[in-house]
Amino acid sequence: MATRILAFDTTTELCSVAMMIDHSIYDHKIVAPRSHSENILPMINQLLIEVGVTLQSLDCIVFNRGPGSFSGIRIGISVAQGLALGADLPLVEVSALEVLAQGAWRIFSAKQVISTIDARMGELYWACYHRISDDSCWIRSDNESIIRPEIIIKKLIYSSFQKLQGNWALVGTGWNNYPMLKCIRVPGVISLKKSIMSPEAQDMLPLGICSWKNKIFIHPNQAKPVYLRNVVAVKPDDILVL
């Protein structure tokens, strides 16, 4: 019996949906700032029709728990909960930062990745990942955290990446949205930041199927967002002028 998994992402300006039927992947994506709530359900419905399956026939739904846009995360979790409850399906959660790493692997076969997402207010969401082999899962080298650009500079340049051996790829919006990070040059660090900017649903599928096969899934009522920041109001002094 074919494995059937649906994934979708609304955590950044990119709105994307994808489905895996056995080993075949189908996906749609659009850049839709501030309109995910209007687009995500029609996109999911369109993909189900195109692939010719029903929601009830799926094995599970993969959702992005964040970090990312506060409203985008909430929209994604609400949709995931509603669909899963209605179709009696389990949910699998993935990290937005790990999804970026998976994108670097899919496109460039990068096995060591530093993912960032612009958190606004002069900060970035940050995490480092590596994988041992082609068929292995990602291992996080540190905790997901929120960090200022100048601290990243210190980590990359002044510490000389002492604990991170080999070549590392930089991906995500965080690198490209801050001038001091845009042109960073560090031995062993490869900039892929312009190629992989946002998490995509198609890259959630390998992560989700790994968890699903290992029976790592949750009930819809257990789905929770990961914001990394508790403060949601932007103060004038916190705005970084680019």
Rank of each mutant, 00 (worst) to 15 (best):
A32H: 06
L48N: 09
R74V: 09
F70D: 02
V189C: 08
C137W: 02
A101C: 11
L47K: 04
I44K: 03
R131T: 08
V17L: 07
N45I: 05
S145W: 06
D203A: 03
C210L: 01
N39F: 00
F70E: 06
V189T: 10
A2Q: 13
R34I: 04
R65E: 08
D142S: 05
A87F: 10
S159A: 11
V186Q: 13
I239D: 12
Q222C: 11
H23N: 15
V62L: 03
K213E: 12
Y158F: 15
L156T: 04
K154G: 04
I30G: 04
W138N: 09
S159C: 01
Y125N: 01
G208W: 01
I218V: 08
M204I: 04
I25M: 08
P236T: 10
V231G: 01
V226G: 00
F161L: 14
I77K: 01
H36W: 08
I21K: 02
H219P: 02
I107S: 10
I73V: 15
N64V: 07
A110W: 00
S195N: 11
Y158M: 14
I196K: 02
W105A: 09
A101I: 04
L181R: 00
R131N: 11
V92N: 12
P67F: 04
N143Q: 14
I152E: 00
L156E: 05
P225D: 00
I139M: 07
V171K: 03
P179C: 11
G172A: 08
I61S: 07
W138C: 08
N64S: 08
H23Q: 15
K224M: 14
N177W: 00
S24F: 10
K29P: 02
I21V: 14
H23S: 14
H23M: 09
C60G: 11
T12G: 13
N45R: 04
